[in-house]
């Protein structure tokens, strides 16, 4: 079974009553363990598509099916709970709760899932170690570099044991070294935990690392290729 099925999804925004088609008739399927990049110029609809997959936005037409469940029809509140249990997110920035330490940020999502304390503590330590931040556990985001913050975000996204992780330009604010490091960690996680990653990017060095590259042009999938 596919992890994600996107069937004929279109999204039209209305900017001052003028219809702006952001995504048009997109059909895509993702299987478990994919490491896919969503690429395309600015305004091509990457963010819109990721938001629709993650249920942060509703498509104007079409449907998104996650492990057989049509999530397009879920109410906003149901969708929040669905995201909590099934989807990990990494955004371009402002991923973390500023008043919580790295450890607390990662633990927070597991607390929302009501996981037992012992499990939480064990997994937090494990994940922060995997992203190389074992010595930053009790540091707050504002005392960490952008790269370190993004690594905490990846750890947080994994902590909830989601079915897949969506990352909208996770490296956009990072220098190339930090970006490469973050990609290393992501692909590591992808390999070790067999977790599906879908990320959008502009960066050609990031694109190189993806196993599958989906190109959007003016909201339409213009190419979808496997590499390596």
């Amino acid at each position: 079974m596919n992890v994600i099925d996107i069937n004929n999804v279109s999204k039209v925004y209305h900017d001052n009553a003028i219809p702006v088609p952001a995504v048009t008739d997109v059909t895509l399927h993702f299987t478990e363990g994919e490491f896919a990049a969503l690429v395309g110029p600015s305004g091509s609809g990457k963010t819109t598509l990721l938001n629709i997959i993650g249920g942060l936005d509703k498509p104007t037409k079409g449907e998104v099916i996650i492990e057989g469940q049509n999530v397009t029809s879920l109410s906003d509140s149901k969708m929040i709970d669905f995201r909590l249990q099934n989807i990990g997110f990494v955004f371009q920035a402002y991923n973390l709760i500023p008043v919580l330490t790295a450890r607390e940020n990662v633990e927070f999502i597991m607390l929302l899932q009501k996981r037992p304390k012992a499990e939480r503590e064990k997994r937090v330590a494990e994940l922060l170690k995997e992203v190389g931040l074992q010595d930053k556990m009790d540091t707050r985001p504002n005392e960490m570099s952008g790269g370190q913050q993004q690594r905490v975000a990846v750890a947080r996204a994994l902590a909830s044991k989601p079915k897949f992780i969506l990352a909208d330009e996770p490296t956009a604010n990072l220098d190339s070294k930090s970006a490469a490091n973050l990609l290393d960690i992501m692909s590591e996680m992808n390999k070790n935990e067999n977790i599906t990653f879908i990320f959008s990017t502009h960066d050609s060095r990031v694109i190189e690392r993806a196993h599958r590259v989906i190109t959007l042009t003016d909201g339409v999938v213009s190419s979808d290729v496997l590499q390596k």
Binding site: I80, D81, R83, L84, F89, F91, Y94, P98, Q113, S160
Partner: peptide, 16 residues
Amino acid sequence: TRELGMLMAIGLNKSR
């Protein structure tokens, strides 16, 4: 706003 949006995105429900 952004922080709250992020929290709701990752799964902080309305009552919380």
